[in-house]
Write a protein that binds this DNA or RNA. Structure first.
Length: 176
DNA sequence: ACAGCGATTGACT
DNA sequence: GTCAATCGCTGTA
């Protein structure tokens, strides 16, 4: 039983979506084949309320998906070598995104830990940014495959100096 | 125009 | 534990 996630899932505040994405499956279809992985670690990012967010100041050619409709991919290039994958979330007019930090690759549950490694696994590049995952024809999307999740915990986000009081990082264990 | 650094990783001491 | 890789975004001038 595979149910593709729809707009009502992503049109909520980033913290709720980040928590609920644990255990959901990220899918990318390419000419090479299909890549599927269960999400095990996420981080929520907001807008003007979140000093650690790329969207704290203003919209730019890079971060525009965070301002646009929920369900858009937001892929950014960092440290001159890594691509990090986010999905834009929030009700229309709300700014935010969820970063995918770790997954387990199906069907063997091989762990891939770290946003740069997730980007490498899915071969994400800048051309994958701004893609609408909710479109029926989209080659990148999330789906619910019915995985049960245990021990979802929140903690401070990794790799940032600001807003360390916000516990917007989520980790969980996949039951199988 | 330019210096500094980032939602990171891998290699090396 | 420390540090290089490598480039676009950002703040300052």
């Amino acid at each position: 039983m595979k149910k593709k996630l729809t707009a009502d899932f992503f049109e909520r505040n980033p913290v709720d979506v980040a928590a609920d994405l644990i255990g959901k499956v990220l899918v990318k279809k390419t000419s090479e084949g299909i890549i599927e992985a269960v999400v095990t670690e996420t981080e929520a990012y907001g807008g003007q309320d979140d000093p650690a967010s790329h969207a704290f100041r203003k919209q730019t050619p890079r971060n525009w998906p965070m301002y646009a409709e929920a369900g858009l991919t937001y892929v950014y290039f960092v440290y001159g070598m890594h691509y990090c994958f986010n999905v834009s979330v929030g009700k229309p007019g709300q700014v935010g995104a969820v970063l995918i930090r770790a997954v387990q690759v199906l069907p063997d549950y091989v762990p891939v830990i770290g946003p740069g490694r997730v980007g490498k696994l899915f071969h994400f590049t800048s051309s994958d940014s701004g893609v609408q995952t909710l479109k029926p024809s989209s080659s990148i999307f999330f789906e619910d495959q019915g995985f049960a999740v245990q021990n979802v915990q929140s903690s401070a986000r990794i790799g940032i100096q600001k807003a360390l009081d916000k516990q917007w990082r989520f980790t969980g264990t996949i039951l199988r």
